[in-house]
Write a protein that binds this DNA or RNA. Structure first.
Lengths: 331, 331
DNA sequence: TTGTACGCGTTATCAT
DNA sequence: ATGATAACGCGTACAA
């Protein structure tokens, strides 16, 4: 077993209380005894047991991060941003992949609570009320990332998905496109992606373009959905452009177009969403809405740490800026 | 404060020992009293405090994962594989990004030890002896992923990078290519990527192709390195093909070629390494060596959990199979 | 079958 | 300035 505070105390010839004091730099302790203690710590290469400390102090210096899936292009950046600031403040993160499965999410949240995490960053494309209830019941300090809760009760960091999608669609319209397809997820959910659909819809409406149900395709956010979407939509006629709810969809869509001998952007404009790294490497380089993914993580973590330390928040529901990145998939 | 085992005991009218027994399903406890306890647990929506339990049992049911950078395409898959099996066995993971910085790695390892993780998965493109020493000194149960330690002392899961690179280069040679460039990292390091260079070198040698230093470019594993590499190499003459130490390098290289009006694969063959998701979406789809990234994580975690539970390992240094995925970047 | 009491490694209060 | 000692919440000998 590793050396404990007792061993240090014994070797230094002092009480454990004194050792604890020099360890935490608290109270005043005689320089000589301090030195003795430090020597003993050195000699035993003693390191405090944080689990024991946590039990006493009721704070573990670890934070839970609940995401759908780390292997999904969007989240690594967010997690990295979060971990970076966590690290600055001496927190560690417990990573949990939920696959957006409600039961799995609830189970993870409970375990996180049992492990006494100081707080949680919760990310999910959809936000079930049950989750909010559970968070409240457990009194688990939480910041929502990517989704906003109705009401002002839960702190969050998001972007304005609706407006961003509106801007993207408007951009397509301004380029002279009329028949603009949408590939994304069903709109009947209360989530970030649904808001993108709303933005798309409103942009059409505001510009007197009639919504054509044949130009809509719902799948997930992955590339195959984009590929399939194009194939399905093109069965019903031609299109001028397509708004994709993710960059991966855009990549799949462009590949489908290419396989059909249709050139992007010459014949069909394609716009993506998120600005994942590969969007700038793809051919053609993808025009897209850039979400500040790293910042969403770091800002979210900053907020959470403030909450944990009972500091006031500048803003309860933080809305970050997105921007449209003009590249080569729109002419 | 949340309900503790005492509260449950009091409400159920039994001792905390009894509560603990039903909690852990240990010893025999009367059905009636068991029911009383369970009711009390329900009533108080009691959940055991794992921190306290850990202090007592000396196991935290959490495992540290140390990686260079989660936002680097390679690791999310590995981490996902690891977390999935961790979850099966009721472990959680603490994720640490080291940026391959030795000091940061050492600091993280110490903190993980302080937090009493039951074990660690260590990944890094390079493996410093100091790390091995620290792991030994701390007696931290560890499985190395991606890199193998000299000697049989440390368990690891890897692929045969040297042979894989050999195969890839041989494949290029068999396609009739002579002037084959290499874009990767310097070979003077003892790491996985260095082995890829060795494989490249040996394949040339075995096929009587002289190594041309002008055809070598060293950078990192990112796309810009591939882009720059092509530009630098082409200043010294033409090439038939290029072996890239990562898929991202391959993407950068292909983009550079395209910008120079050189077609891939018609004029220059390009082969990548890893088979990250985007390799199959890129245009042209990238021919590459597929590393079983998810499996590296899951197998590594399985090994680690066995070690933690003092079960024997089938193999100390596990070598996983790679395979060459033929796609469109090689004609 | 159940209860008492100790200890896991800390921090913090109260004396001295 | 320093030392005893009581928690923190739990598991587990040992007793009963």
């Amino acid at each position: 077993m590793a050396a404990s505070i007792k061993d240090v105390a014994k070797l230094a010839g002092v009480s454990i209380a004194t050792v604890s004091r020099v360890l935490n730099n608290v109270d005043v302790v005689n320089d000589d005894t301090k030195k003795k203690v430090q020597d003993a710590i050195q000699a035993l290469s003693y390191r405090p047991n944080i689990v024991a400390r946590s039990l006493k102090t009721q704070r573990t210096k670890t934070i839970g991060i609940l995401i759908p899936d780390i292997s999904n292009q969007f989240y690594p950046e967010v997690v990295r941003g979060a971990e970076d600031v966590a690290n600055i403040y001496d927190y560690n993160i417990i990573l949990c992949n939920s696959d957006t499965d409600l039961d799995k999410e609830k189970e993870y949240i409970k375990v996180l609570k049992e492990k006494m995490v100081d707080g949680m960053l919760y990310m999910s494309s959809q936000l079930d009320p049950e989750i909010l209830d559970l968070i409240d019941e457990l009194e688990l300090k939480t910041v929502l990332v990517e989704t906003k809760a109705p009401g002002k009760k839960h702190p969050s960091v998001t972007i304005d998905n609706r407006k961003a999608a509106y801007d993207a669609t408007k951009y397509l319209i301004d380029k002279g496109n009329k028949r603009i397809a949408y590939i994304g997820m069903k709109k009947d959910r209360k989530n970030a992606v649904a808001k993108r659909y709303e933005g798309y819809e409103k942009a059409l409406k505001d510009n007197d373009i009639e919504l054509d149900p044949d130009l809509l395709y719902y799948g997930d956010l992955k590339a195959p959905a984009g590929y399939k979407g194009i194939n399905v939509i093109l069965e019903n006629g031609s299109i001028d452009a397509v708004f994709c709810a993710s960059d991966e969809i855009a990549m799949g869509a462009i590949n489908a177009l290419r396989d059909k001998g249709i050139k992007c952007p010459e014949e069909v404009d394609v716009i993506g969403f998120n600005d994942i790294y590969e969007a700038s490497i793809f051919y053609p380089k993808i025009t897209t809405i850039a979400q500040p993914m790293y910042d969403m993580g770091s800002v979210g973590m900053r907020m959470l740490i403030k909450i944990i330390n009972n500091k006031p928040l500048d803003e309860e529901q933080y809305e970050l800026q997105y921007h449209l990145v003009e590249r080569d998939s729109v002419k």
